[in-house]
Simulated assay, not measured.
Amino acid sequence: MNIAWTYEHKTYTLSNGVRYKPDFLLETGEYVEIKGVFNFQYDLAKIQRFESEYNVKVSILQEKDLRRLIKPTPFVFEHLKQEWKARTKVRGMDNFGKRNPMYGVTQSESTKAKIRAKAKARFEDPAFREKFLNSPKRKAYHQSRIGKKTGTLVPRISLICEICQRSFEVVQHKASKRRFCSKHCSIQAQHGKTSMTDSGIRSLTYAFALTNSEQLFSAKLNQLKDIFQPLLDSIKKEYNILDIRTICQIVVGIPCSRKEFLYHLRSYVQNVRGATTN
Rank of each mutant, 00 (worst) to 15 (best):
K259V: 15
E162P: 01
N212R: 13
G200L: 11
P255F: 06
D94S: 14
R258Y: 15
S218C: 06
K98Y: 05
V56L: 00
F217S: 08
T13N: 12
E27Y: 11
E260Q: 13
L26K: 14
I70K: 12
K64G: 05
S167R: 09
V105K: 12
G200M: 09
E51R: 01
V32K: 09
N16R: 04
D243L: 00
G253E: 08
Y239G: 10
H173D: 11
A4N: 14
K220H: 12
I70T: 12
E51G: 04
K114N: 09
E238M: 07
P101Q: 07
T246G: 00
M1Y: 14
K149M: 04
A113C: 07
K236D: 06
G151C: 07
N55T: 10
R202K: 15
D125G: 02
I227Y: 09
A209L: 07
L66T: 03
E130C: 03
K114I: 12
M93W: 12
T73M: 04
E78K: 14
N240W: 02
P155N: 10
A209M: 06
I47D: 00
S158D: 01
K46S: 00
S213T: 05
E260C: 07
C185M: 03
R91F: 07
I201M: 09
S176F: 03
Y7G: 08
V18R: 00
D226I: 05
V171S: 08
M196R: 08
G147C: 06
I250E: 01
L14G: 00
I146W: 02
G192E: 13
S199K: 04
P101F: 08
E33V: 07
Y263R: 01
R116Y: 12
K98I: 06
F75V: 02
N55F: 09
H191W: 12
E8L: 07
T106K: 14
I187V: 14
K35S: 12
V170W: 02
E214K: 05
L265F: 00
E238Y: 02
S108M: 08
Y268W: 09
L204F: 02
R87A: 14
Y268C: 08
Q229N: 11
R273L: 14
I70C: 13
F168N: 04
Y103G: 08
I227Q: 11
E53R: 14
V252D: 01
Q215F: 06
R273K: 13
L204Y: 04
V76P: 03
I244D: 00
S218W: 01
F217E: 08
A86N: 03
W84I: 15
K149E: 04
T277P: 05
D94T: 11
R145F: 05
K148F: 07
N95Y: 10
C181Y: 03
T197F: 05
R116K: 14
K120I: 09
V18G: 01
E33D: 10
C181H: 07
A4M: 07
V251H: 08
P74D: 07
H191D: 15
V90C: 03
Q82L: 13
E53V: 15
K177C: 01
S110H: 02
K46H: 00
R91H: 10
T194G: 14
I146E: 09
K174N: 08
A140C: 03
K220N: 12
F38L: 11
R87T: 13
H79P: 03
E83N: 10
N2C: 08
F168V: 06
Y20G: 00
